[in-house]
Amino acid sequence: MLKSIDLNELNLLCSPESDKVVIVNFWASWCGPGIEELPYFKKLKKEMPSIKVVLVNLDFENDVERNVSPVLIKGQYSSLENLRLTGLKADDWMPLADWDWSGAISATLILASGKKKFIEQKFENYSALKAAIQQL
């Protein structure tokens, strides 16, 4: 259900390529606001199938089966790419998403037109997500 990725794969994920639009959302089952915005990403993928939408889960190892899988199954997020990070030090992987990110989640990285935009908070609604992408 969740593919574990390492630092190398995360770096590739967070590197902008000129012709691709990639949305990477960092979330955890214990972050309520982060779960509230997950449906927006599912809707985005449905409306714009050519955009790559990735959910990166940050739950603690032991909580994945108990807390993460139910969220993904209930919300039917299998249409999105579901990844998780294992055993990586925050100081090693967080700067790859954004240098100024000190750790607050949920957060979303938007890659478009060869540029990066990092939003260190949840999206209030679906329009806010779309607007953030269009602004790039």
Partner: peptide, 12 residues
């Protein structure tokens, strides 16, 4: 040393 570390937490 280190004088600064990052950590995952709930956004304020």
């Amino acid at each position: 040393n280190p004088s600064f570390t990052r950590a995952v937490g709930c956004g304020i």
